[in-house]
Design a protein around this nucleic acid. Structure first.
Length: 584
RNA sequence: GCGGGUGUAGCUCAGUGGUAGAGCGUCACGUUGCCAACGUGAAUGUCGUGGGUUCAAGUCCCAUCACCCGCUCCA
């Protein structure tokens, strides 16, 4: 659905023309799903990452408890022990079997487990029902329907999954038998008392089964391919000898490196719960189909925080991060209604998650909002998994709370606890526990793309010859702009270039600034507009203090968005910029 | 992965079998007095890649790669 394909085309062309983003390996014909950041792009993306690091790690905000939050940074290796990915679930969870419908008018690609949802059979036709929205069609089936459920999961897993869906919550399931069908058969009675007949069987003979299976989308019988493994993990080998035992993966997310270092950080950095660990780094996913410029690429960069807190405070911290992260985007210029904060519905949540909010942007390539960042309440799922798989104790011990407790007992004259009592009491909450995790996980490339889309602006106005011209300008927040200011001698004579260059050299000590003496002033302004430079500083006759100058010793500073010009004294220019650009 | 579309100069694109083009941009020199100014000059392409048909291929055929749209996915 190209919501505004023309807009997207113009933006992509500008990115390439001005050196924001290039296709990777372009001279060799490119490579799908990989992109390079050019001179302007790298500045923009780095500004975004630096801003994020500054705002959350080096100068974190005040938390809901009124204290500045504790944050530390981390930079983990991309390649880790493959057991990490077994523990996290990625090794299996990222390998979905997919089937394609080969019917000419259909050609749909779907996850095999979705195809194998719920089939309701009535006399000769079979109809597919999404198990999450089964009610209407099941009603039509007049309770007589045979509903074979087949899946690559085990029968038990499937039943658990079925009971988790909206329509079958609180169903009772009783083993039964349909005629001579050898597969496991069940009578399913839902909470409204409606009775369904279901056959549940693991897929062992797809080749046979698919001949009779209709496509969920077009209902053509036997048009589905066999499930093929779509593995989203990037396999690689460590060690020069490529053997099975040296196989591992490039990380699909940076978060697991944080969990694996949880204990190291506790032992070395004097942080106490609540605290957060932040990481910026590359991650890799073999996307089925990388699309939409840098939005979905196979190599991408994440900005992730794992914030560890007590279970009882977790919803406060969740709300805090959800709002803090949303406001971060708004304050850096994603001000339009194209940015939204959306709470996930109960159905969307992972089974271990209490809450999750997505920060979404309405990109021009789609008429649906797309995720920039997910702020998830992950419970203690990840640490539990790593504890289980690694065998290492990852529990947190509240030393202060424990010694306060002991001191209080002593003061009250209570008898000293025995060793056994101590380990019994101190070994469980509130003294010893697995912390709950709030995870704001952002895509740096997606953020970059959103800022690019939001910044792209056009003005129509007549030029010197009266011909309508389009002015294209990138309305970046000054803190994100790749180039902060350009220094331009109005004309190349009478000492203007020399003054401009000296001023440029002064400013360059503090900011990424640019010097341009080539071409007419209007053209130079236009070039800076396309690069998104917020300020153009022009050295003119007044600067030189020429006869009749109204403002001797001043330069003009042109604002990119309003086109208004201020006159500022030469010696105040750097200070003027500092006021507007901040320290970073 | 399946189906459809596209690929010619830095960018946007024209070119339906017979000497590769335009606009914009870029560079140089001259000029210059605030919003893509003007003059003069210049550079730039193995027409995505490989193979085939033909006297002759940017153009026709096959393969391949990349990008765009849909299915799917989610940072």
């Amino acid at each position: 659905m190209p919501a505004d394909a023309a807009f997207m085309d113009k933006l992509v062309a500008l990115c390439k023309r001005r050196g924001f983003i290039f296709q990777s390996s372009e001279i060799y014909g490119g490579i799908g799903g990989f992109w390079d950041y050019g001179p302007l792009g790298v500045e923009l993306k780095r500004n975004i990452k630096n801003r994020w690091w500054h705002d959350h790690v080096t100068n974190p905000p005040t938390g809901p408890d009124g204290h500045e939050i504790q944050m530390v940074g981390l930079d983990c290796s991309i390649i880790m022990n493959p057991k990490v990915w077994e523990a996290s679930g990625h090794a299996t969870g990222f390998a979905d079997p997919m089937v394609t419908c080969l019917a000419e008018t259909c050609n749909k690609l779907m996850r095999a487990d979705q195809v194998l949802g719920l089939w309701v059979r009535e006399s000769r036709s079979a109809e597919f029902v999404d198990v999450t929205a089964a009610d209407a069609v099941l009603g039509d089936a007049r309770n007589q329907a045979t509903a074979p459920l087949v899946t690559s999961q085990t029968t038990e897993e499937l039943l658990v999954g079925l009971l988790a869906t909206k329509d079958f919550k609180k169903s009772t399931i009783t083993p039964t038998r349909f005629g001579n069908d050898p597969r496991s058969a069940y009578e399913i009675r839902n909470r409204n008392g409606r009775v369904f007949a279901g056959i549940i069987a693991p897929i062992t003979n797809w080749a046979e089964l698919r001949k009779s299976l209709p496509c969920p989308a077009c209902s053509t019988i036997g048009s589905l391919t066999e499930p093929r493994a779509f593995n989203l993990m990037f396999k690689t080998h460590y060690g020069a000898l490529e053997v099975a035992s040296s196989m591992t993966y490039l990380r699909p997310e940076t978060a697991q490196g944080i969990f694996c270092n949880f204990k190291n950080i506790l032992d070395t950095s004097r942080v106490k719960i609540p605290f957060g660990i932040a990481q910026i780094g590359k991650a890799f996913r073999n996307e089925v189909n990388p699309r939409n410029f840098i939005f979905r690429s196979r190599e991408f960069e994440q900005m992730e925080i794992e914030f560890f807190c007590r279970e009882e405070d977790s919803m406060d911290w969740y709300q805090f991060w959800r709002n803090t992260r949303y406001n971060w985007y708004v304050n850096l210029g994603l001000k339009s209604e194209k940015l939204r904060l959306r709470d996930q519905t109960a159905e969307e949540l992972a089974h271990y998650s209490k809450a999750c909010a997505d920060i979404e942007y309405l990109f021009p390539f789609s008429d649906e909002f797309q995720e920039l960042e997910g702020c998830a309440h992950r419970g203690c799922f990840d640490l539990t998994q790593h504890e289980k798989h690694s065998g290492v104790d990852l529990h947190y011990f509240e030393e202060t709370l424990w010694s306060e407790f002991l001191a209080k007992r002593k003061a009250a004259g209570e008898p000293e606890l025995t060793k056994e009592q101590k380990s019994e009491l101190g070994g469980k909450p509130p003294y010893r526990y697995l912390p709950t995790v709030i995870e704001p996980s952002a895509g740096a490339d997606r953020a970059t793309l959103a800022f690019l889309c939001e910044a792209y602006s056009e003005d129509q106005k007549p030029d010197a010859k009266g011909v309508m011209q389009t002015r294209v300008y990138m309305k970046f927040h000054p803190k994100l702009a790749p180039i902060k200011a350009a220094f331009l001698p109005l004309v190349n004579k009478e000492g203007m270039p020399e003054i401009a260059e000296k001023l440029y050299r002064d400013a360059k000590k503090h900011f990424n600034v640019f010097f341009d003496d080539g071409g007419a002033i209007g053209r130079r302004y236009a070039r800076q507009d396309e690069a998104g430079t917020p300020f153009c500083i022009t050295i003119d006759g007044d600067t030189l203090g020429k006869e009749g100058a109204a403002n001797p010793g001043t330069v003009t500073i042109r604002d990119r968005d309003s086109l208004k010009q201020d006159r500022v004294g030469l010696e105040h220019v750097v200070g003027w910029l500092k006021e507007r650009l901040g320290a970073l």
